[in-house]
């Protein structure tokens, strides 16, 4: 009984702490938005896992594509204008081994580490294309969520990603992103 009472007390303590946190956030210089407006990105069934997505690829390749996705031809056209930023969402090692020519590297898993470089380099009103390894990689989708939450509006995904691009004899580069 005493243990239950302590657990209830602990829960109340967490609520008080949350209120303190919200109050502190309100007075800090650069507050975070408490309630976010979820950006529109390619949706997938809520109960589907990454593994399910890989399995379903052979049966129905276009199942998880989003109408806003761009093809390699569209990406080439966008790159030709010189007005589009291409972002590789994969890890540093994969990027260094090979990436689309001119692409910068913002590994989703190190988004915060790269945040300053990203915002210095890419204006928020710029046209941005994100890519990952292939349709089975969801780092691009996740990076797009973070970019849209941060105010980047013109962001689309090249879903077939590095695998298709590198097999198509299109311009590639190696080496780390120097920023």
């Amino acid at each position: 009984m005493k243990f239950i009472k302590d657990l209830a007390g602990g829960f109340v303590l967490l609520i008080i702490a949350a209120v303190i946190g919200v109050a502190q956030n309100a007075v800090r210089g650069n507050p975070v938005k408490l309630i976010l407006e979820a950006p529109r990105v390619a949706e997938r069934p809520a109960d589907e896992t990454h593994v399910d997505r890989v399995k379903s690829e052979s049966d129905e390749p276009a199942h998880h594509r989003d109408p806003s996705d761009v093809s390699k031809e569209q990406l080439q056209e966008m790159m030709a204008t010189g007005m589009t930023f291409v972002i590789d969402a994969r890890g540093e090692e994969e990027y260094t081994e090979g990436h689309i020519s001119g692409a910068i590297n913002v590994p989703y898993e190190k988004f915060i580490d790269y945040y300053q470089a990203l915002t210095d380099y890419v204006p928020r009103d710029a046209s941005v294309v994100v890519y990952c390894t292939s349709i089975t990689c969801d780092l691009g989708d996740r990076l797009i969520i973070e970019l849209k939450l941060d105010g980047y509006e013109n962001v689309v995904l090249y879903r077939d990603g590095w695998e298709e691009w590198s097999e198509s004899d299109l311009p590639v580069e190696t080496g780390a992103w120097e920023y």
């Binding site: 303590l13 702490a17 919200v22 975070v32 408490l34 976010l36 979820a38 950006p39």
Partner: peptide, 19 residues
């Protein structure tokens, strides 16, 4: 849910600190 992720993060962070 993405909409509540920042609020949850803030609550956990301050819960850890206060406790």
């Amino acid at each position: 849910p993405i909409a509540l992720s920042n609020l949850f993060a803030l609550s956990v962070a301050w819960g850890e600190l206060v406790a």
